[in-house]
């Protein structure tokens, strides 16, 4: 079983459109959307949700107003400025503390040191994850709750579920849609993958972000290849990216031209290879075939 993870560094380079086409071309893969805080793959794959599960990646502190004596110990020891002296009065204090949920990182230090045990520490529900059927096979995806954390843990969980399903269904491949950036959800998406396909675009920003994401794959020693999307927007920078890839032995999985049918396919909720009939369909297919070759 092989796992391909599609990431980009810079956002909006076309990851999800390419993953949807790969799903259509692979025919025998399990799909996973690991862009958990702005998931879009479901808009093309129209999953029929079969299972829904809550996800808890950690705990959150809450102050029990009736017990709080307003001593300020929590505020003094919290490294995240989460306790606020804005709670209502109770029988012992004129004002009490509350925990600002956006700031709480669930470390539990206040819980440990509160002199009157006024702080509860409960599992936080950070989101939900789903197992669904799509026209291209089983898909595992998730929705991180609004303003929630622990996206890295959710990503790891989705990849594990996808792997278990692939084993059970005897599938040869897992295709993963990753998130932009180089931080915790991206590291969680790529660790241990068989191949990372980086989708970039020929802009100075794209090139800059590509360098950083390549460095990330090298740091974690994960094989990587690059695909240049909308390559004809700036052929000069496309050449620079090709040259750079050559210098650092980064394999090139192909180029895709800018084509308005890519947006039209998205509006029609179709993958590029289902919707388009012209060159862009062939280019995406060629990127898929090259990616498979690199994987071998």
């Amino acid at each position: 079983m092989k796992e391909i993870v599609v990431i980009s560094g810079k956002g909006g380079t076309g990851k999800t459109s390419i993953v949807a086409s790969f799903a259509a071309l692979a025919k025998n893969a399990v799909l996973a959307d690991c862009d958990v805080d702005a998931a879009d793959l479901h808009l093309i794959l129209k999953p029929d949700i079969k299972q829904t599960h809550d996800f808890s990646g950690g705990k959150k502190a809450t102050i029990i107003t009736e017990k709080c004596i307003g001593c300020g110990k929590c505020e003094q020891i919290c490294n995240f400025d989460a306790p606020k002296f804005d709670g209502p009065a109770n029988s012992t204090a004129e004002r009490t503390y509350t925990i600002e949920p956006f700031s709480c990182e669930g470390c539990g230090v206040c819980v440990q040191f509160c002199p009157v045990d006024a702080i509860e520490f409960k599992d936080a529900i950070n989101g939900q994850w789903f197992v669904s059927e799509t026209r291209f096979g089983t898909m595992v995806h998730a929705k991180l709750g609004i303003a929630e954390e622990n996206s890295g843990k959710l990503v790891s969980l989705i990849r594990k579920q996808a792997k278990d399903i692939a084993t059970k269904q005897n599938k040869e491949m897992i295709i993963v849609d990753g998130s932009p950036g180089i931080g915790c959800p991206v590291i969680a998406s790529i660790s241990g993958a068989d191949l990372v396909l980086i989708v970039t675009e020929p802009t100075i920003s794209g090139k800059h972000d590509l360098d950083r994401v390549v460095e990330l794959t090298q740091h974690f020693k994960i094989p990587a290849a690059v695909c240049i999307n909308k390559y004809d927007i700036n052929t000069k920078i496309t050449k620079q990216i090709e040259k750079r890839a050559d210098e650092i032995s980064l394999k090139i999985a192909g180029k895709i031209a800018y084509d308005t049918s890519v947006t039209k396919a998205q509006i029609a909720a179709k993958s590029i290879v289902e919707y388009s009939q012209n060159g862009v369909k062939e280019q995406v297919t060629s990127v898929w075939e090259k990616t498979l070759n690199i994987l071998k």
């Binding site: 956002g11 999800t16 958990v36 805080d37 702005a38 879009d40 808009l43 956006f102 700031s103 991180l144 609004i146 303003a147 929630e148 954390e149 996206s151 998130s179 932009p180 950036g181 931080g183 959800p185 947006t263 998205q266 509006i267 909720a269």
Partner: peptide, 29 residues
């Protein structure tokens, strides 16, 4: 980009947030 902890940290105490989007299904979602 996104909606998780890095964005929350960035938006805290902002007086105004401008959300930039594009007119596509992904942009809308």
């Amino acid at each position: 980009p996104g909606t998780s902890c890095p964005v929350v940290e960035t938006l805290k105490e902002a007086d105004f947030v401008l959300l930039v989007t594009e007119p596509t299904p992904f942009g809308l979602n």
